[in-house]
């Protein structure tokens, strides 16, 4: 991952600041940086979103394609995640450099979405055992400025909210052969219910305290962080420790409480933005990549 090199006094400055609940950019320990969310930025996708969180820049595109359901779940569609670490983000990602980080993030996303209730997969089924929608969620890292996981999960949720899957009907003739018919109206489509899609909250342990939404500099000061995924109702669906260090059990419990609180307010803020954008409809001025 992209990293910065800090000298010992610089680290000490950050750690002491965090102790006083005052971070280098003036935030408190539980504050997120200002986030920009825009949906429907790539017209070739079924749904897309771009999230800019400080200097972290993420683009997510969702493409719906028809496939065959998995054998063990014949009446459900499924999601596929792929994370591409662009060399624009850091030169370390050039060639196959970003592959390891990419698979790690994709595995984390699979775990976050492993809960049955996160997305209604049954609605993606067209006809059991034969056809279903497969949602390919492609994540592009355009810029890394710390706290990748949170930004990616926000972008994935926004992109899924924006996803429109065309409606299809299955026609069956007398001989039992089936035919799939696509609706003529392009606006006739299914929307996904994203109320239960979790967001990831990363809590980095710095000194004796933990912070949310760490910048690259703060990540360099933290030995261990806890990654938890929270739904809008405050339920935890997955957790993972990342980093070289270890954590005290008591501080893990505290971090989970903070994560739940922060995650809930994050969901409320995100939903508000998404609804606002939705209500503007086509009259919305698109910012895209020029903003």
């Amino acid at each position: 991952m992209a990293s910065v090199v800090l000298s010992e006094p610089e680290k000490l400055y950050i750690v002491h600041g965090v102790q006083e609940d005052l971070r280098v950019d003036g935030r408190g320990c539980e504050d997120y940086r200002c986030a920009e969310v825009e949906t429907d930025v790539v017209s070739n996708t079924s749904g897309s979103a771009r999230v800019k969180l400080g200097h972290t820049d993420i683009l997510v595109g969702v493409k719906a394609e028809m496939g065959t359901p998995k054998l063990e779940k014949p009446d459900e569609g499924y999601l596929e995640f792929f994370v591409d670490c662009s060399a624009n983000a850091t030169p370390e990602f050039e060639g196959r450099g970003g592959e390891e980080l990419g698979t790690e993030i994709a595995n984390t996303l699979y775990r976050v979405f492993s809960s049955e209730s996160s997305v209604d997969l049954k609605s993606l089924c067209i006809n059991p055992r034969e056809h279903c929608w497969v949602l390919y969620v492609d994540v592009l890292l355009l810029e890394c400025g710390g706290n990748l996981f949170d930004a990616i999960s926000i972008a994935v949720k926004a992109a899924l909210f924006n996803t429109r899957i065309p409606k299809v009907r299955v026609l069956e003739d007398e001989e039992g052969s089936k035919e799939i018919e696509l609706s003529d109206d392009p606006y006739d489509c299914i929307r996904l219910n994203v109320d239960d899609v979790p967001c990831i909250v990363t809590l980095s342990k710095i000194g004796y305290r933990h912070v949310v939404d760490a910048t690259l500099q703060e990540e360099a000061c933290s030995l261990a962080s806890l990654l938890i995924s929270v739904t809008s109702k405050g339920a935890l669906t997955s957790m993972k420790k990342v980093g070289k260090g270890s954590l005290d059990p008591e501080s893990i419990f505290e971090m989970m409480e903070t994560g739940k609180r922060v995650g809930k307010s994050l969901h409320i803020a995100l939903q508000k933005i998404l609804d606002e954008e939705e209500s503007l409809g086509t009259s919305r001025q698109k910012v895209g990549f020029l903003g």
Partner: peptide, 26 residues
């Protein structure tokens, strides 16, 4: 790490439940 009482790995997921339930599990 039992002698130091430090948790070196936490890895889990599945159906959502309240933080208290996860704390109990931990």
């Amino acid at each position: 790490l039992p002698a130091l009482n430090q948790v070196s790995a936490v890895l889990g997921g599945g159906q959502g439940s309240s933080p208290d339930a996860w704390v109990q599990a931990l």
